[in-house]
Design a binder for these strands. Structure first.
Length: 352
DNA sequence: GAGTCGTGGAA
DNA sequence: TTTCCAAGACT
């Protein structure tokens, strides 16, 4: 079953072409026995879920500088972690990151589990991430199956079944390729291969260590795999955000509910987003339409967000939300877009 | 199994 | 401009 030749080819390629990443211990150092900090591996893997390496790098450095170990992160305030995560997306990851850190710090003595089951039981750690941490941080022979692995296996073995139906076969193929020796490097090698050679569009098959074994390449269908089930069109939702700035410069914001879209993040008051925009001002004031709207696309819908802006008197008592000295970088992107437009309009009002 | 949950870069 | 989709998890 196990194909030692393919595995050896891949590890040889990885020894020469491994990407240099801030959370990674390069293959030559691992050979000398150097292992990565499990905290750094965990942090990077959570950030990398559905997120590009380029987007993650800055966040990884800032988190590690601010919270150097899991105990420090566990002691952080919720709002500080959510603010530091702002802009990276999928904010349930940040909420679970903090939950996980507190379990590890409070119940596990600050030590990450080194087994698949132990890791899998922690908040925010699913099948992929548990296998990745076990393999990369602890060199356990676990099989990682992420989007890269799915694409590489679908091509290498010419699996024509569309995703997600093909997942069982893909996992079976990937497990058969996972070696007992250097499983951590193997896991990182398959993902590097998928990220740099076996890319979604126009793969660089001429540079691939598996070009001689790839069934899709032999048939010339590599760019058509993996096949995917057709996706549904995104509806358009409409909303209105109220951006009120008090005379002292504080902004009226509200903390969004823990569950759901942008859960736990700061946002602007306003009604729900739906077929029709809802006029729900958080306080009676001279709200003005700046004449511009925010357009933003989420995973499953397009948003057109109308704006209302006002300068609010110092002693005003809002029906909802609170006034804060705002750091725009603490806002999720859609809210920061609204802030930037509103600030420009309000500043123009003040100077004109 | 299917829906929810962000963002930005590339084509 | 629009679509695709990137180291998925949770419900």
């Amino acid at each position: 079953m196990r194909d030692g030749r393919l595995s050896a080819n891949l590890l040889d390629w990885y020894d020469r072409h491994a990407r240099d990443l801030p959370w990674r211990v390069p293959p030559d150092a691992r050979r000398r026995g150097v292992m990565p900090d499990p905290y750094a591996v965990w942090l990077s893997e959570i950030m990398l879920q559905q997120t590009t390496v380029a987007a993650v790098k800055g966040y990884f450095h800032r988190f590690l500088a601010r919270w150097p170990d899991v105990t420090a992160l566990a002691r952080a305030e919720d709002g500080a972690v959510m603010g530091e995560w702002a802009g990276l997306g999928y904010y349930a990851r940040a909420r679970n990151l903090l939950k996980c850190a507190r379990v590890v710090a409070d119940d596990l003595g600050g030590v990450f589990p080194d087994t698949l089951d132990g890791l899998r039981a922690l908040p925010g750690i699913g099948p992929y991430t548990a296998a990745a941490i076990a393999a990369i941080a602890f060199d356990r022979p676990e099989c990682v199956v992420d989007g890269n692995v799915e694409r590489v296996m679908a091509r290498l073995f010419r699996i024509e079944t569309p995703l997600p139906a093909a997942k069982p076969e893909i996992r079976s193929r990937a497990e058969a390729l996972t070696p007992r020796a250097r499983p951590g490097d193997h896991a990182q090698a398959v993902m590097d291969l998928g990220a740099t050679i076996c890319t979604p569009k126009s793969p660089a098959c001429g540079l691939c260590p598996w070009r001689g074994s790839c069934a899709a390449l032999a048939a010339g269908v590599q760019s058509d795999l993996p096949a995917r089930a057709p996706k549904k069109p995104k509806p358009v939702r409409h909303g209105i955000a109220y951006l009120g700035r008090r005379e002292d410069g504080a902004w009226l914001v509200e903390r969004r509910p823990e569950r759901g879209l942008l859960g736990g993040m700061l946002g602007w008051p306003g009604g729900d987003w739906g077929e029709m925009p809802q006029e729900v001002p958080p306080v009676n004031a001279d709200w003005r339409d700046p004449g511009v709207e925010v357009r933003h696309t989420f995973t499953h819908f397009h948003l057109r967000l109308g704006l209302r802006i006002a300068t609010l008197p110092q002693d005003i008592q809002p029906k909802t939300g609170e006034f804060v000295t705002l750091h725009p970088g603490d806002l999720p992107t859609v809210m920061r877009k609204a802030h930037d437009l509103a600030k420009a309009a309000l500043d123009a009002d003040a100077s004109g």
